[in-house]
């Protein structure tokens, strides 16, 4: 299992820092949501933001986009300050919000067209068909969104993010509410973004095993503070724990209240693909499961996706 992980790390060439946060802080009244966060993210990596709900992941993303103003500290995205030049940042960064919405009475194409127009893109028609092709929604292009399944909506969200041809994408809980097949499609798509489109990806999730499957590095966030960052392997070495994100995660959350750990466990059960793989080996080796399963789905990816659609 560690081999598989190392293999993935080799694929990723460490680029120069593309996002830099220094002592980034956000207060809402007396409540501190993001607490002196210092972190840099390199180009071409998939960075997983881990933490329970309300840990400050979304707020951090909003500050990176200039949608929320930091109370103190500085941010640089692509060398730009999102506070001073939000438009430049937003034209190069795609943001897929948690529970991203669409105009239900408009078709997928019309929704995409609106986003393209807001970005003042040229050559809109060909870009629309390109991204629709990419997320495999070509047949559903003219259907109204109200007829879309959750998985299709999520893929359309991805298309809307990619149509502006961004350099960085922020994905906030991209697998939320998807069924196992949908989750796999989404993760397989995300994992290819750096190599195929040269993108840097920040992935926020409270679901450990999902982040584990795609992220090159992770940052563990709790109550606005960054508890740890680095690749799973680095973190394992530092903590002297097995090469297992779950063990590392629970190490950091020891004594921090059981609810978080419990909620993670529950979510994990819900999202666990029950129809695939050997359950016994999964429990012992979550990393290996993730890896082997990914290969499996790579092979039968398209069919799985079609199945998913026909269910709805």
């Amino acid at each position: 299992m560690p081999e598989a992980l190392r293999e993935r790390e080799l694929e990723y060439e460490k680029g120069s820092p593309i996002i830099e946060m220094v002592e980034l802080t956000k207060n809402y009244g007396r409540h501190t949501v993001v607490d002196h966060l210092t972190l840099s993210i390199n180009s071409g990596e998939i960075f997983g933001f881990l933490g329970p709900n309300g840990a400050g992941k979304t707020t951090t993303l909003l500050m990176l986009l200039g949608l929320s103003l930091p109370t103190s500290g500085t941010v640089k995205v692509l060398g730009l300050d999102p506070v001073k030049e939000p438009l430049k940042v937003k034209s190069k960064v795609g943001y897929m919000a948690e529970n991203m919405g669409f105009y239900g009475d408009m078709s997928a194409k019309e929704n995409l067209k609106y986003v393209a127009e807001l970005n003042k893109l040229s050559d809109v028609e060909s870009k629309i068909s390109e991204v629709l092709e990419m997320v495999d929604l070509k047949e559903a292009a003219d259907k109204p969104i109200s007829a879309f399944s959750r998985g299709m909506r999520q893929r359309l969200g991805m298309a809307e993010v990619l149509i502006k041809d961004p350099q960085i994408v922020f994905l906030d809980e991209p697998t939320l509410g998807l069924d196992p097949a949908g989750i796999n499609t989404m993760l397989n798509f995300i994992v290819r973004l750096p190599s195929e489109r040269g993108l840097t990806v920040i992935l926020c999730s409270h679901l450990l095993h999902l982040v584990n499957r795609v992220a090159h590095r992770v940052g563990i966030l709790q109550k606005g503070r960054l508890l740890a960052q680095g690749s799973v392997k680095d973190l394992a070495e530092k903590t002297g724990l097995p090469d297992d994100l779950e063990a590392i995660y629970s190490h950091f959350f020891q004594g921090e209240g059981l609810e978080e750990k419990e909620s993670v466990a529950i979510d994990k059960n819900l999202d666990e693909p029950k129809d695939k793989g050997d359950t016994a080996s999964e429990e012992k080796a979550p990393l290996g499961r993730g890896e082997s399963q990914r290969e499996e789905e790579n092979n039968k990816g398209p069919q799985g996706e079609k199945e998913n659609e026909s269910h709805h």
Partner: peptide, 17 residues
């Protein structure tokens, strides 16, 4: 309505004031 639909944050994340 856009806020409840989740389209408002999407629009604001596009490069417009």
């Amino acid at each position: 309505r856009e806020r409840n639909l989740g389209t408002l944050s999407k629009i604001l994340a596009q490069p417009i004031h």
